[in-house]
Simulated assay, not measured.
Amino acid sequence: FFSVQIMATSSATNHTYVPFTYELAPVPMDEIMDPTPAEQRAIALQTKQAEQEQRQENTKAKIERQESKGGFFSKVSAAATDYASKAEKAARTAYSSAEVQAFKLAEEHSIKRFNTAFPALASTDQLKGDHSCRVVTSGGAPHTIGGFLVVTDFHVCFVGDNKVNFSFPLSDVVSIQKAVTLPTKDQGQPYLLQLPDPNIIPTAITVYTMQKQMHVFSEVTKCEDALNILDHCWRAVVGKPPIPGADYVA
Rank of each mutant, 00 (worst) to 15 (best):
M214I: 11
T209W: 08
A179T: 06
S175H: 08
T152I: 08
Q189S: 12
G139R: 06
N199I: 01
A120I: 10
T124Q: 13
T184R: 13
C157F: 03
C133M: 02
K128W: 02
T181Y: 06
D197A: 12
L149Y: 00
L192T: 15
P142F: 05
V150L: 02
L127E: 02
P142H: 07
A141Q: 12
F148N: 13
G129A: 11
P202L: 11
H131M: 06
A204H: 02
T181E: 06
L182T: 15
K163T: 07
M210T: 09
H131P: 04
D130R: 00
L149C: 06
I205M: 04
P169I: 02
C133W: 01
H131C: 10
L192Q: 02
T184V: 15
L149A: 07
V151C: 02
Q126I: 09
A122S: 14
L192I: 15
T124N: 09
V173P: 00
F168N: 01
F166L: 08
V136I: 12
H155G: 00
Q126D: 07
P142V: 06
T181V: 12
T181I: 04
G139M: 04
A204C: 03
V156L: 15
A204W: 04
C157Y: 00
L170Q: 05
P169T: 08
N165E: 05
Q187P: 00
P190A: 06
A204D: 08
I201H: 10
D161V: 11
Y191R: 15
D161Q: 14
Q126T: 14
T124S: 10
V159T: 14
Q211I: 00
A141H: 12
G140D: 03
H131V: 03
T144S: 13
V174M: 08
D161I: 08
V207A: 03
D197S: 14
G129W: 05
I205H: 04
F154H: 12
T209S: 13
F217A: 05
A120P: 00
L149P: 06
L149K: 09
L182F: 11
H155W: 01
Y191S: 13
V159E: 06
V164I: 13
I201V: 14
G188P: 03
V173A: 01
F166A: 00
F148V: 06
H155N: 13
H131T: 07
V173I: 14
V164M: 08
L149Q: 12
Q189T: 12
A204V: 02
I200T: 13
K212V: 02
A179M: 07
V136R: 01
D186K: 11
R134A: 10
V180A: 08
D125H: 09
V174D: 01
P202C: 07
L149V: 05
T181G: 07
I145E: 05
G146P: 05
S171P: 05
P196H: 04
D161H: 11
F168Y: 12
Q126V: 09
I176H: 09
C133L: 02
L195P: 02
L127H: 06
S175E: 10
Q189A: 15
V174N: 04
S167A: 15
L182H: 12
I200A: 09
Q211K: 14
P119N: 08
L121P: 05
L170E: 03
M210N: 09
Q194S: 15
P183C: 09
G129D: 10
D186F: 03
D153I: 04
V173K: 03
P196W: 09
G139H: 07
V159C: 14
P183A: 05
S138D: 10
V174C: 04
I200M: 05
D186Y: 02
S171K: 05
